[in-house]
Structure formats: C-alpha cells, structure tokens
C-alpha cells in the first residue's frame, strides 16, 4: 500500500506501520518521536489532500 502511494509520489514517510506490544511503552514513544520528526522534516501534506473548490 505504502509502496503504491510512494510510487504515485506520496512521500514514503507519510505512511508508517509498526508492531508494538502492549508492554513496549518506550518503543511506542520512540516511534511517535521518529514519525513526528520525519513528518516535520517533510512539511505539510499536499499530495492527495482534498482541495475544496
């Protein structure tokens, strides 16, 4: 899914998948930080975003 979106030009970092067990609170936080950093670096999403005209 991400592959196809990326193929269409949507930045890969906009879609994240992860597996975290309910005991892995630190991993959860790490993933949130990682995604947040990556997305901030990308800037706002313009691809596929609905433009109301």
């Amino acid at each position: 899914m991400g592959n196809l979106l990326e193929h269409m030009g949507v930045e890969k970092d906009r879609i994240h998948f992860s597996w975290i067990s309910s005991a892995e609170a630190t991993k959860f936080v790490d993933v949130v930080k990682e995604i947040s950093d990556k997305v901030r670096a990308l800037g706002p999403n313009t691809k596929l975003k609905k433009i109301y005209s």
């Binding site: 906009r14 879609i15 994240h16 998948f17 959860f28 995604i35 999403n45």
Partner: peptide
C-alpha cells in the same frame, strides 16, 4: 493528515 500511522 500529514501522515498516517498504523500500529499493531
């Protein structure tokens, strides 16, 4: 959304 995150 600026990103989507799915986590299992």
């Amino acid at each position: 959304a600026d990103a989507v995150w799915v986590s299992g």
